[in-house]
Computed example of a mutant assay.
Amino acid sequence: MKNTGTEWARRAALLACVIGLAGCDLLPRSGPNKTEIFRGSVQREGDAFVVAVDDNVTRATALVPALGFDDGFLNAGVVGSDTINPGDVLGVSIWENVEEGILATAGAPASLEEVQVDGSGFIFIPYAGRIKASGNSPETIRRIITEKLETQTPDPQVMVRRLAGDGATVSITGAVGGQGVFAIERPTRTLGAMLARAGGVAVPAEVAVVKIIRGAKTGKIWYQDLFENPAADIALRNGDRILVEEDTRAFTALGATGTQTRVKFQTQSLSALEAIAQVGGLNSTVADPTGVFVFRNEPAEIANMVLGRADLVGAQRMIYVLDLTEPNGMFRARDFVIRDGDTVYVTEAPYVQWTKLITAFSTTVGAADSLASAATTAGLLP
């Protein structure tokens, strides 16, 4: 009886020790539990607002980045395909009606095959002099040359054609099929057509962002929106710089989810339900579906709307709570929008800590029994 009483006393002491370890938070876990998170709320003298997600919250926080061009880009007309720019190359042919003309003989044209427009926008034609070409069409340049030559040769016939359009160009870099400098020509006078000329985008269309820099102005648009909204297919201008890049937004998944990592957005908008699905869903063995939290620094104007206040200033720490077991819990998780930089955290179910506690107790008792047996065998214990 004495030995049995001693054994039970020893085991009770071990159990008390393990329970003490559990109370001291020394058992391993993936993060804070629901009680600890609520304990850190402003309502309990913490520094974060803990808010249960409802329909009003989903509406107030449903912000998806709206990308698009301002009127300066949208109202710019398409550049005429025949407009000459500095750097363009022209072909000029001149016929004269005299046997010995100043440039050619009768019936045979004087051909100036490659006349490049200089940086100031001018070309030089013998006997016609320096002529402004930039900003004019080939037809206008033809008339100017004709007028200049009429004073020196009777009824000159002039033909001007554009040989190359590399005077008006755009540069395309980033996630496209082929980066480079491309001429603005008749088929490629708009953004969509120019991207097609560059081989299209090299990242999923759902997360491709097109950025265009024109002088001091910058515009951005989703690649998908470019095709769904024809008005967004803006006209290009000489010197435009176009960058195609993958959406850089991401959220962090922690806790009892399928994986714990930083996850990039795969669509323009992402709901809490989709975010959980992207990381493999809830861990069915440990997750608490009543404890899905979204941590976010919320702008003051949105925080005031969510909390029904008007006195908050500056970004506020907000913790949104989703309970997937509620009748509308799945719908609210589907409607709640995840934003760039959010942390999605799923707490462990309460029984998980008890399971760990029992496992730790059993392991400790087993180790103690083994140690006692070894000591008895060695004669150290009766």
Rank of each mutant, 00 (worst) to 15 (best):
A231Y: 04
P86M: 02
R249Y: 00
I221C: 03
V18S: 04
V346E: 02
D166W: 13
A374D: 07
S120G: 14
T173I: 13
I37V: 13
G77F: 08
F251K: 01
D335P: 08
S111I: 12
V57M: 12
A256T: 13
V321S: 07
G40R: 06
I242Y: 04
A168L: 02
G77N: 10
V92S: 00
V115S: 12
V117K: 02
L15V: 14
M305C: 07
T248H: 08
L381S: 07
I141H: 02
K264W: 09
A9K: 14
M330C: 04
R143I: 05
D155M: 08
V42E: 02
I141P: 02
A368N: 07
I102S: 07
F182W: 06
D340P: 00
N3A: 15
V207Y: 05
T83Y: 06
V160K: 03
Q116N: 05
A272P: 04
T61M: 10
G341H: 03
D288T: 11
G366R: 10
G329Y: 01
D88N: 13
D71K: 11
P204G: 03
T140S: 14
R241V: 14
Q116P: 06
Q268D: 07
Q260D: 15
T261D: 10
L270Q: 00
K217A: 15
Q278N: 07
L26M: 12
I172N: 04
L195Q: 01
T259H: 04
D88H: 10
